[in-house]
Design a protein around this nucleic acid. Structure first.
Lengths: 219, 219
DNA sequence: TCCCTTCTTTGATCCAAATCAATTGCGGTG
DNA sequence: CACCGCAATTGATTTGGATCAAAGAAGGGA
């Protein structure tokens, strides 16, 4: 994106903060904005009346939150941690898209990536065991932290923060809190992961984690 | 789409037939074409080495099969029934997209719909019971057949063909063949569905089916 | 028509994960 | 510091769906 584009963006945007648990976008209301995540983690969820919940997507910086070319929205977006976003009124953003068609192309590509991720997760939800599910999730995070930390190397030790509580991990993996906890202690006992604190994880050997995650975790 | 566009398309396309079980697109090979489904049902699947399989998408006429702006492809596409498609070489199709940007916009919207469908299914796979899963699938088909049959009315009786065998239904719902079969007989016993033949279904009262499907089946 | 194969249903048993139930740990706050 | 409320672990028990095992249907080819 060019500098000119960026300055245009800053003219029509404004910062906004959300704290853990706050609803950013609701099932019921039309979406009036596009948002770029600056910091924190946002969860997209679907819910059934009796309280059952499924996280259908996680968003990290610098992901986008919003619905291109559609006013209604079938998900909840909730702050999974304290979150800071940069918001654009929908109309202004779409005007910008008209001016810079490349932006639209980028949004399209991002949507395709999201579709692949969703389908990857369908395999996990439908066919993987609890142990494989938890391992796959940790692997996802481990890989993410690797990319952020050092794009070119492939170190075998990684340390990262869990951006979710156990309850959210359960909702992402289609499990219960208790099962997630038990699987984590199993992985710990097997020496595949270490935990200095409930939210801090070390993976001494990623290959070992890949093993128990079962395949299909290409990215 | 204009007549001119259509004639352009027919110049660069050709018909092709596949019979049940045939692989149309593989995991391993780059995608070289775009295809419009004329008749039959195509399943998109992801597989683990030990044989576990998950159907991540079903395609019916007049859906598109292919990957815009990406050569590699993380799924298998397999004929779930006898299938007839209309194929376009990838380069030719993308040239067409350049000429008619509206086409690209349509593809984008379709991708967004697929994403919503995938996430809807994530809720089903992660949080619904076997009974709810089977009912949800039948509901999906019932609604589809309603749309095809009479776009404007809302009759309460529907009859339609199951486009999948039990094994495929199981792979779509994250269940086993046996469980699918049992749930079908339960629904039959409860009078919620009727089956003249293993592949032909009647739904006397869609509202009753909606009830057991649990919500979240908006479309 | 009768095999032969493949699909489907049904039954009996088992097991992974859910549920129920404490207990422990931990961060804030008066 | 001690208290409170929430998050996480750990244990005991239950259960929904998987697995194992047969026994029907339904093609479909010779």
């Amino acid at each position: 994106m060019t500098d000119e584009q960026l300055s245009r963006l800053s003219e029509i945007s404004h910062r906004k903060k959300y704290s853990v648990g706050q609803v950013i976008m609701s099932d019921q209301e039309p979406v009036t904005f596009f948002a770029n995540i600056i910091s924190g983690t946002i969860k997209l969820t679907k819910t059934i009346a009796d309280g059952r919940q499924q996280i259908v997507g996680l968003l990290f910086p610098p992901d986008f939150l919003g619905r291109a070319f559609s006013r209604n929205n079938p998900y909840f977006a909730e702050a999974a941690s304290d979150v800071e976003v940069c918001m654009f009124p929908n109309e202004a953003f779409e005007r910008l898209i008209d001016v810079y068609p490349d932006l639209k192309h980028r949004l399209f590509e991002r949507t395709l990536d999201e579709l692949d991720a969703a389908r990857e997760w369908m395999l996990l939800l439908g066919r993987k065991t609890a142990e494989e599910k938890v391992a796959s999730f940790l692997l996802l995070l481990a890989r993410r932290s690797l990319v952020v930390a050092c794009p070119n190397e492939k170190p075998s030790l990684t340390r990262f923060e869990l951006p979710l509580r156990r309850a959210d991990m359960a909702d992402y993996l289609g499990l219960t809190i208790e099962t997630v906890s038990r699987q984590l202690t199993r992985l710990k006992a097997a020496g595949i992961v270490g935990m200095s604190d409930t939210r801090t994880l070390e993976v001494p050997d990623i290959a070992a984690l890949v093993d128990v995650a079962g395949q299909g975790m290409a990215l």
